[in-house]
Amino acid sequence: MVALMKISVMDTSASPAFAVETIGLTKRYPLSWKRKIVLALDHLDLQIRPGEVFGLLGPNGSGKSTTLKLLLGLAIPSEGEARIFGLPPDSLEARARVGFLPENPYFYAFLTGDETLRFYGKLCGVTGAKLEKRIEELIDLVGLQNGRERPLRSYSKGMLQRIGLAQALIHDPDLLFLDEPTAGVDPLGSSQIRDLILRLKKMGKTVVFSSHLLEQVQEVADRVAIFSLGKKALEGSLEAMLVENQSTQINLPAELSAEQQERVRQLLVQAGVGAAEIRFTRPHLSLEQLYLRTIQKAPDANPPTHPRP
């Protein structure tokens, strides 16, 4: 094999204090037949600390997937550098600590659930009794008991996503990249995946995931970055970004009568709030919350996993 000369663009002693760190990370794709260059990612600076759940947001083609590919060493940066726990992303050491779930995975349609996990386990050097134990754990974790002996081509989309998560976790990585983990999955499955992400966070894992469904991100992410046209447009913690500093909301478990409303209004006016700015509303459930409540009331009629055909 031919020895590859590595040309370092920046200082290689990057701080391992970050699970993910990118500095000026840039990716250009040349379209040779059009003599044009597409700028897929433009000088991205990103720092994700261990234990964080980080959401990458943005419309399709805004650079989320490119970022993940660069962080996994699947694509080669045109400029800048990425580091995973201080290591270059294409090094085996870095990838031993990383799990990845691609967007809409299909996997090997003719392998069963167990065989799939066994295969990925072997790739990570997990073997023997340790591997079998790990498979048991993961099947439990993602709830795929009924998919163990079935070939993946009979899986539903949600099951594929869950086996995908299981394979990403097979070698117990510290850092997980999930590309659109809930795309095409029904709301129940998608909420299970959300729960799973939160459980992983509790286990101390760092999770980086991309999504274009904002509500989901809101529920699990500590921090987000919003991408637009290959550029990071905004980054920060949800706490800080989503709170409207100019208003306060008071939640009560009971409905207020008109009379009670008037008395509260007077109290607030006395406290110095302008009367015209006070509004009384009743909180709305999101349709998703309503749906999940309905489904969870009748768990027997809708088992969480898919029945055998």
Binding site: K69, L72, G73, L74, L92, E93, R95, A96, V98, G99, F100, L101, P102, P105, F107, Y120, L123, C124, G125, G164, Q167, A168, H171, F177
Partner: peptide, 8 residues
């Protein structure tokens, strides 16, 4: 992608 994301 899943294979190359592993230490392979």
């Amino acid at each position: 992608y899943t294979i190359l994301a592993k230490p392979v």
